[in-house]
Computed example of a mutant assay.
Amino acid sequence: MPFFRTVAASIISLGVLCSAQSWADAPDKPEDFIRRAMSAIQKKNYRYAVFQLKDALKMDKNNADAWNMLGFSYRMQGEEKFDLAWNAYEQALTLDPNHIDANEYLGELYLMQGQMDLAKEQLAKLDALCPTGCKERDMLAKAIADKAGS
């Protein structure tokens, strides 16, 4: 009887090892890269987030959320990355013109560049997208009001 238990335990162990090896060899999905990017963004590690989002976009170039977060990550790195941020937001909005976050973030980018009129255009788009209001619209409106007051 102990022989059969040993054989059974070996078979089970081999099955677990094989499934673990298959899992370890499984390629990442775009969502995996995006999840790592979001974690990096929470830690303000925007450079690492950019690498993760670029990898996600290699696998799914039509992911408006990934383009939007790429724009955010570039924008948060400062003025020298604003052109890259703008391009990423434009790509997100080409894929999804109603992308609420991309519309807000593009408005914030315009504010950072001193382009108040363009920021207000983004606010008007958010007014249309959020007729009953939304936090993104409110955040851009506050940023515009703060900038106008300073």
Rank of each mutant, 00 (worst) to 15 (best):
P2M: 11
P2L: 03
F3D: 15
F4C: 09
T6N: 09
T6S: 14
T6C: 02
T6W: 06
V7E: 12
A9S: 15
A9E: 12
S10C: 12
S10N: 08
I12T: 13
S13W: 14
S13N: 02
L14T: 14
G15N: 07
G15V: 00
V16E: 06
V16W: 10
C18I: 14
C18M: 15
A20C: 14
Q21I: 01
S22E: 08
S22P: 01
W23T: 06
W23L: 11
A24L: 10
D25S: 03
P27N: 01
P30I: 00
E31Q: 14
D32G: 09
D32P: 11
R36F: 00
M38Y: 11
A40H: 08
I41G: 02
I41W: 02
I41D: 10
K43G: 05
K44Y: 15
K44V: 02
K44I: 06
Y46P: 02
R47V: 15
Y48P: 04
Y48N: 01
A49K: 03
V50W: 06
V50H: 09
V50I: 11
F51G: 13
Q52H: 10
L53I: 09
L53Q: 03
K54Q: 15
K54P: 12
A56C: 14
A56G: 06
A56L: 09
L57Q: 07
M59R: 01
D60G: 05
N63L: 08
N63W: 12
N63M: 08
A64M: 03
A64T: 05
A64E: 11
A64H: 01
A66Q: 00
W67G: 04
N68I: 04
N68E: 13
M69K: 08
M69S: 07
M69L: 13
M69D: 05
M69T: 02
F72W: 15
F72G: 05
S73G: 07
R75E: 01
M76Q: 10
Q77S: 14
E79W: 15
E79F: 15
K81V: 10
F82M: 00
F82I: 09
D83V: 11
L84F: 13
W86V: 00
N87P: 05
E90V: 10
Q91C: 05
A92R: 07
A92F: 07
L93T: 01
L93I: 00
L95A: 00
N98M: 11
N98E: 00
H99D: 01
D101I: 07
D101N: 10
D101V: 08
A102S: 11
A102Y: 00
Y105C: 05
Y105I: 02
Y105H: 13
Y105G: 07
L106V: 03
E108Y: 07
E108V: 00
Y110T: 06
Y110G: 03
Y110D: 10
M112F: 11
M112T: 12
Q113S: 13
G114H: 12
Q115C: 05
M116L: 12
M116G: 02
K120D: 09
Q122F: 11
L123N: 03
L123A: 03
L123G: 10
A124S: 07
A124R: 10
K125M: 11
K125T: 05
K125P: 07
L126V: 14
L126G: 05
